[in-house]
Design a protein around this nucleic acid. Structure first.
Lengths: 345, 345
DNA sequence: CCGATTCTTTGAATCGTTTCATTGTTACGA
DNA sequence: TCGTAACAATGAAACGATTCAAAGAATCGG
């Protein structure tokens, strides 16, 4: 259990100066082949591993980027995280991951931690009101990019997905396969995502003269909430039923599907076409594979890192003008069996 | 965009020595109230935030613990991670999370990164053969605890779950509700978890004279693989059918359930009782809520941190004897509707 | 008022790396 | 052979926090 070898130990062992060892590690071209070989051998023999704390102390900042998400268990964020890690690795940075779990105090703790660690920058999908903290960080030279939240370009960079467009896509698809009596199933419209998706759907319906859209409020965003709405539906008389249902997320859609499947009189997609949102793993393996709206999570994660890099560039010692961009992605329609085939009978 | 304030700036601003500022932060009792107030005011006015790199450089080690999991998207690991983070926070450490994604090279990169960061210790559910790396780390004073993998106590500490016991629990439960013709559905038995669960089931069946266990090999561990097995089952004649099915995980069970639900002649649990493994979120919201075996993920995460603390203690300058413990948890039966009611008709 | 004791405060040394001005070395053309 | 580039190697200083021996201040009993 010996203390780790330092660059000084390596220097002694290789009979060179510490500066030379440093050069071998950072500017190999400045060192002659002979010396380089000797140093590398010494490094190997001593099992030397750079001490990142010392590097970072000297450099004034770390080579890490903080990323705080609302819920790592959510496949949406899992995918964003992975993409961000890969993109960061390409530019030689590592990602420190924090999971706020929708809890403002956990979020705040992570911001503290990351600030102590002197991260290069911060990616965050905020829970609480963190604008003050973020402003303070920026003043210290630590830029922020908001993730999955549209920000005022005058203040922050951000990456987000156009939920209105997604809602439009879903409703438009139902209309395209001939459905006219649509229903929207979603939780409280106080959630921005839900409101936007509904709005997009309404926009699509307004474009088709004889189409209608009914809004069915669900108690939440879970499978059980969906089943609650589904149970109401199956109790209706046939001429009162929608022929196309758009759910604000896949869990709700799966719940609705379960209700319809248990009663064996209504068929998907023949009687009711069904589409969800998010394209979670379970969508493809549902009893009837579920059509859905896929969000470009990889692009979100990758772009967030790119925007952060732009912010860092813009803060270079030369230019001090802030540089913000709000990138909005458009989601994508994924058609499966639950909306397959032509129009309803 | 001013440089962050250092402890020196604080000292100047408060007209005290740097050592005093440090004492205020680390040993408040050593400092008089008057001075403390002055220093705290200065800290506040300058917005001083400790530089962790400098602390860590001086201390020789960080206050962080590395945690490398196979897949953060997997609810099992998500839960372990959260518990570990909370337990670490209690003892004043933070957790650096790495997701190897079952990829040995990503895993290796994270070990490199954590070693450069001089983490206090490492929790890992390994992909590749990392014993050499881990031994090297231990020699440097960085202990490791294996997660979700039973280790030889002579070499490592570990936390794991007794899959044999879980398999026994599941099969025993089916037998307890009167089922006798059991079937096990699982992927290749080369996967240790699958083999152990099967073995436990066989043990339970062996205890009941007139019970039998049939093994149905599934192509994988997914919903679709489960549906494949289910489709085979529904084609059988009634007297050739099992009356209790135990699946090696919940996804398989959900697949089997889908097959049976689509054909409307076999009922769950009346004709076939069904139980899964893992107790994922979807289990409770399946068409027929699924009985399952729950793994004590919170205990796993918490205990992993505790074992690491023990290892660190045991490595203190006084004692050098290694101290390893392999803690094995017993999973828990969760009964829902899919195995409800008494014996089969 | 003095010496002893306790409580506060000080500031230089240290951790391991990078940087950079300086010195040392080599090679080459004149 | 010498002067001059071009190239290599050197080692002290700096980054910011913590530690600790030592100095300074306050308190108390006699």
């Amino acid at each position: 259990m010996s203390r780790s070898a330092s660059i000084k130990d390596v220097a002694n062992h290789a009979r060179v100066a510490v500066g030379t060892v440093s050069n071998v590690l950072n500017y190999p071209d400045r060192v002659s082949q002979r010396t380089k070989d000797r140093v590398l051998l010494a490094i190997d023999e001593l099992g030397f591993v750079r001490n990142d704390a010392a590097r970072q102390l000297r450099a004034g900042h770390s080579r890490t980027i903080g990323l705080i998400v609302l819920d790592v268990g959510n496949p949406f964020f899992t995918s964003v995280v992975r993409a961000a890690e890969d993109a960061a690795a390409l530019q030689g940075s590592a990602v420190l991951l924090g999971d706020s779990g929708h809890d403002a105090s956990r979020e705040s703790n992570y911001i503290d931690l990351f600030q102590e660690q002197r991260v290069q920058g911060l990616l965050i999908s905020p829970v609480g009101d963190v604008t003050e903290r973020l402003d303070q960080l920026r003043e210290r030279g630590v830029p922020t990019v908001l993730v999955d939240r549209l920000a005022d370009e005058a203040k922050y960079s951000s990456v987000s997905v156009d939920d209105d467009a997604g809602g439009y896509l879903a409703a438009r698809h139902l209309l395209d396969i001939g459905r006219r009596r649509l229903a929207f199933v979603g939780g409280p419209t106080s959630i921005r995502q839900v409101a936007d998706r509904l709005q997009g759907a309404q926009r699509a319906v307004a474009e088709v003269p004889d189409a209608s859209l009914e809004v069915l409020d669900s108690a939440g965003q879970t499978v059980l909430a969906g089943r609650g709405v589904g149970d109401q539906l199956v109790r209706r008389s046939a001429d009162d039923l929608p022929d196309g249902v758009f759910c604000a997320n896949d869990l709700l859609a799966l719940g609705v599907m379960q209700s319809l499947a248990m009663l064996h009189t209504l068929r998907i997609p023949e009687d009711i076409a069904l589409i969800g949102y998010d394209d979670i793993d379970f969508a493809v393996s549902a009893v009837v594979p579920l059509s859905s709206i896929r969000q470009p999570t990889e692009a979100l994660g990758r772009t967030a890192i790119e925007l952060l890099a732009e912010e860092l560039d813009a803060m270079g010692p030369t230019s001090v003008r802030p540089h913000h961009r709000a990138v909005i992605f458009t989601p994508e329609l994924v058609v499966r069996q639950s909306t397959a085939g032509a129009s309803a009978g």
